[in-house]
Simulated assay, not measured.
Amino acid sequence: MATIKVGTEAFGLGVMTQADTPREQLDSEAMAIYQIFAEREREFGFSPDVVVEYPPTGEPQTSSFLTDPFGYIATRVAELEKNRPISQIVVLTTYGQQLLGPLSAAGYRTVQIDMPAGPDHTYAFILDREIQATGACSLYLEAVNEADDKIRPTFVLKLIDSDGRLCGGACGSVHERDGKRFAYLATLTLAAGLPPATGTRLAEVMFETLRQQDVTALHLGTQTAGRFYEKLGFRVTHRLVKGLRTRVSSSGQHLTDDLVMMTIAIAQT
């Protein structure tokens, strides 16, 4: 296990890839890191001006959202508009191939999100309803196939403190397309209370790990960390929902974060 220093503190850093670690262990290590991420996500709320829903997709052949997306959404909008008008609908999904025909026909703007190492058929569908009524809000629907084998982790970095405690890490997948290798970052997170710049140092090591695998570009989506990734050099490719998440900074300032898709070139120059 390597060691990285942040200020006066030293952390152990374990690096695992599909080349040296069984897939089941990668899955387990990634899940432990995700649990830290889920805990940190509790620090964020959702904007009161965005209704967030996760349509059921457990059985794709019988899911009303997947078999009749226009009808499903129309029913939800009618129910929600008993309380507030809906001015915009945004659907982010990895079932884009199934939804493309019906939602395009219904007037939704189609945004294909190309992440070569991420979930296939990732699309955003956006409908601006031109409703200017007071109190209008947006409806955001997210439907992701979590069982997609392509997004199973092929790399994991885990950060261990001096007491042997897991205190963060990063995980994602690497895949090849057209002779080039790309990466998708599923999670990069830290436990609360670590020294400033720990996240940046972890990201730098991740970049170097991916370069060693001949990765040329890294993609991700985030609701809560766009500013952090922009400081690392990522650029926004799609800004899908403005002000989706809210939080209070350490100085007491109320901040909002957009749902964005991002990328960075990491090949050696």
Rank of each mutant, 00 (worst) to 15 (best):
M1H: 04
A10N: 06
F11P: 01
P22A: 06
R23P: 04
D27G: 03
A30K: 08
M31H: 12
M31L: 15
R42A: 02
E43K: 14
F44V: 09
F46I: 12
V50L: 04
V50W: 09
G58D: 08
V77S: 02
A78D: 12
L80H: 10
V91I: 15
G96M: 12
L99R: 09
G101E: 11
L103V: 14
S104Y: 12
A105R: 15
I113T: 03
I113G: 01
I113V: 15
D114F: 15
P119K: 13
P119W: 13
H121W: 13
T122R: 15
T134I: 12
L139I: 05
L141M: 13
E142N: 08
A143E: 07
V144A: 03
V144Y: 09
N145E: 10
D149S: 10
K150A: 01
L157F: 00
G164L: 13
V174L: 09
H175Y: 11
Y184D: 03
A192W: 04
L194C: 05
P195S: 11
T200N: 08
A203L: 14
M206T: 14
Q213G: 00
D214M: 13
H219P: 00
H219M: 08
G226Y: 06
R227G: 07
Y229Q: 02
V236H: 02
R239F: 02
T246E: 10
T246V: 13
S251A: 14
L255F: 05
T256C: 03
M261N: 08
I264V: 15
I266R: 06
A267Q: 14
Q268T: 15
Q268G: 04
T269D: 10
